[in-house]
Design a protein around this nucleic acid. Structure first.
Length: 773
DNA sequence: CTAGGGTTAG
């Protein structure tokens, strides 16, 4: 019987065990050649223990069997065992590692030190110029961040094959030295070193990250010319490149024309659709992939989790989570855990975020950042700050760019100026205060906390080359009602050679709207397309509808909505309805609300606006209708809350909340205030109350609105006549707006209220925003 | 009988 031939052609574990038994019976199991064949067979079929057993049954192992054993360990990811086996080999007399040993041995190194030691052993053993060994050295050095050593090996080679060139190019790519990688690649083309399929798959991701479609395409053409495009690695890299450069159709075309596809192919395609926001196709592909007999891996599920959170499908989210759990990935894999936290964060399930986070066995800085973002984006800013502080306290992790980018918006969100300033200090410590992203967050934080001057000082001192910081400072001035200054900054931005983008125009248009600069707003809305080539998006239409509507040009605003090429969303109709309310146009307001209730029927704010509008016009029938509608559709309303920072602590108040330790005191203050306010002419406006209750109950409801609670707390806990800074997560209620004017008069305080829309500066009974309530 | 350099991510 020819054991050797049968061992080589065997394809199942079952038959390999039969062969193993036959070997034992025929007394040939100690034959070193056959035993090594068996070892390789078991390793190829995934049974590492059996492979190791075969190895140990060999009475006197030679260099072939050692090489096979070490490479089996490496193949199965047991680097430590591979390393130990290599050292066992070194101790065997008369046995020396050969040119086959070193490439595998280099693969099981786990540090730069290991590589260096192995390098000197290579030299002593006389393999310093071996091509295979050298390319492994180059790749090993690059893997542990030492491009310099890799280059040295490369430069000292007397002759080079494509493998070494490829190792050099891929080493540079993986260390993020894109420009340098391209340089070496060009050299490679010039010296006519063979550019092969490996080179192509190394260089394609570089052109993707350099955003160089032209070069990417020419590499594609090269690969077609040389028949390399049928290689699965090349095809996969091409799909990835095209999708990253937004050529989804080209990516799809390659996918469709592939003869065989592997897991990476499917994952790349799924990720591409996920990045494009086409979640339906992601789910389709996921199904197709499974029907083609492929098992999803962590990467598949990471993309999938992002897709299902995009479509806000709770059932799918749970299914994806279950998938992770069944394989234990949710606890063991950082990537997976982080993706699940992100998913639940986007689904507004913060509780689950914390649960998943707590169960993870290992966490990295991204895990913390994701948790912070989840709290922050779900309005739980205090919790976000707590997590931020625990991060350093419990795991000694240093904040990075992403950490600041998640915690600073949380400070802006609740107006935690002191905390924000403290974190500003930490950005300096981390050497990141000049980072564009962090800098932009800092500018935004100071502006949103009412410190426009500090925001400006920071802005001026920052080296700026992108639109981010400009957008932040323009928006900052806009929300403070300084439209002219916003326009000046806009001009200056262009003098500095920075191009405005679509975000810039949102900042600019809303600045004009807040300042009532109608003519300028209309002008720049036109220029945006004609001069700057930026196609207006729904957000821009919402700004311009707000601008026209506030100024009373309701017909013009309505015409604009009717003629806009995009489908108006709740933002557009919401702005329009608010304008109708300001100008008392019941007819158009009713129209707007019909659309709104269709698009976003759960938002209680629109019902309040409409009811108020009817009440103003004396249409009590309408008021009743809205009330019963609101009652019918048990409205899922975002709870309103306000906050105020006192003595470096942020106090958050929810509407009607009585659980604050100083509630009694606050309540007493509110009663006194109310009496004083009424004395000088305040009349509560019950049309802001949707509940169908008696008038004195309505008065009570209005007086326990969260902004009132925060103001009352501010009054009892700060020095008389000092300025109060209040933050409200929704738009400030019309009655509260009016009431705050009176409060500023009776307490002789300035009161600054920032709501989800803008700043309201109350002083001596007036408000800077000039809105009519 | 054994070997190097390759594509996908939060």
């Amino acid at each position: 019987m020819d054991f050797h031939r049968r061992l080589l052609s065997c394809t199942s574990l079952r038959s390999s065990r039969t062969l193993h038994a036959l070997l034992l019976i025929s007394g040939q199991s100690a034959d070193i050649l056959l035993a090594t064949d068996l070892l390789n067979l078991y390793s190829r079929l995934g049974d590492l223990p059996a492979a190791a057993l075969s190895f140990n049954q060999i009475p006197k192992q030679n260099i072939f069997s050692y090489n096979s054993m070490i490479s089996s360990f490496v193949r199965h990811g047991f680097l430590t065992d591979a390393f130990l086996c290599f050292h066992r080999l070194l101790a065997v007399p008369n046995l020396r590692p050969d040119s086959f040993t070193f490439p595998v041995a280099l693969k099981c190194c786990t540090s730069l030190e290991d590589i260096k030691k192995m390098h000197s052993l290579v030299k002593r053993s006389g393999f310093g110029t071996d091509l295979f060994v050298s390319s492994s050295l180059i790749s090993g050095y690059s893997k542990f961040g030492s491009v310099e050593y890799a280059e040295k090996v490369f430069d000292e080679m007397p002759l080079r094959d494509s493998g070494c060139w490829n190792a050099m190019v891929s080493g540079l790519c993986q260390s993020g030295r894109d420009d340098y990688a391209v340089q070496v690649f060009n050299q490679m083309v010039q010296v006519e070193a063979c550019v092969d399929k490996v080179t192509i798959s190394c260089i394609l991701p570089v052109y993707a990250s350099l955003n160089d479609l032209l070069m990417g395409m020419s590499v594609h053409v090269y690969s077609i010319k040389h028949g390399l495009d049928s290689d699965i690695f090349v095809s996969n890299a091409l799909i990835d490149m095209y999708s990253k450069l937004c050529c989804l159709e080209d990516a799809r075309h390659i996918f469709d024309s592939m003869e065989c596809r592997d897991l990476v192919t499917w994952n790349t395609m799924i990720t591409a659709y996920e990045q494009f926001g086409d979640s339906t196709v992601v789910l389709e592909f996921f199904g197709l992939m499974k029907r083609n007999g492929l098992k999803p891996d962590i990467l598949t599920l990471v993309s999938l989790s992002s897709a299902v959170s995009q479509i806000q499908h709770e059932g799918n989210c749970r299914a994806v989570h279950g998938f992770f759990v069944r394989r234990g990935w949710d606890e063991d894999d950082i990537f997976a855990g982080n993706a699940i936290i992100d998913m639940y964060g986007k689904m507004n399930k913060v509780k689950y975020c914390q649960d998943v986070f707590d169960r993870m066995h290992v966490r990295d800085v991204i895990s913390w950042n994701t948790l912070i973002t989840s709290y922050s984006q779900n309005g739980l800013a205090n919790e976000a700050i707590e997590v931020y502080e625990n991060m350093g306290r419990y795991e000694g992790l240093k904040p990075v760019q992403g950490t600041f980018a998640s915690i600073l918006p949380a400070c802006s969100h609740i107006g935690a100026l002191r905390k924000g300033a403290q974190i500003h200090g930490q950005t300096i410590k981390a050497g990141l205060h000049f980072d564009v992203f962090v800098g932009t967050c800092l500018i935004d934080m100071y502006a949103k906390c009412g410190k426009l001057v500090d925001a400006m000082a920071l802005f001026v001192g920052m080296p700026i080359s992108s639109s981010g910081p400009w957008n932040a400072i323009i928006a900052g001035h806009g929300s403070h009602g300084q439209g002219k200054k916003a326009l000046e900054l806009f001009s200056e931005m262009q003098r500095e050679g920075v191009n405005p983008d679509h975000v810039t125009f949102v900042s600019l248009l809303s600045a004009f709207s807040h300042a009532g600069l109608v003519q300028l707003g209309k002008e720049y809305f036109q220029l945006m397309k004609s001069r700057y080539g930026i196609e207006p998006m729904v957000k821009h239409y919402a700004c311009i509808v707000d601008l026209l509507g506030r100024a009373g040009h309701l017909d013009e605003a309505y015409k604009l909505i009717q003629n806009m090429p995009l489908k108006p969303d709740a933002g557009v109709w919401g702005a329009f309805l608010a304008s109708c309310r300001i100008h008392g146009n019941v007819e158009l307001g009713r129209l707007a609300s019909t659309w709104l209730f269709e698009i976003d029927h759960e938002n209680v704010g629109y019902y309040v606006l409409l009811s108020n509008l009817y009440a103003r016009g004396g249409e009590w029938k309408g008021v009743n209708e809205v009330r019963s509608l609101a009652k019918q559709r048990s409205l899922l309303k975002t709870p309103g809350w306000s906050s105020i920072e006192v003595n470096n602590k942020v106090n958050v108040f929810f509407t009607g909340n009585q659980s604050h330790p100083q509630y009694e005191e606050m309540y007493k203050e509110l009663v006194i205030l109310l009496a004083k306010m009424k004395n000088i002419g305040y009349i509560p406006d019950y049309s802001f109350v949707l509940q169908d209750v008696e008038d004195d109950e309505k008065e009570h409801i209005l007086a326990s609105h969260s902004e009132r609670l925060a103001i009352a707390f501010g009054i009892i806990s700060t020095k008389p006549k000092s300025t109060l800074y209040i933050f409200k997560n929704l738009r400030v209620c019309g009655d509260c707006h009016n009431a705050t004017k009176y409060i500023s008069r009776v307490t002789e305080r300035e009161i600054v209220v920032r709501d989800s829309n803008r700043f309201h500066h109350f002083k001596e009974g007036n408000c800077s925003c000039g809105d009519y309530w």
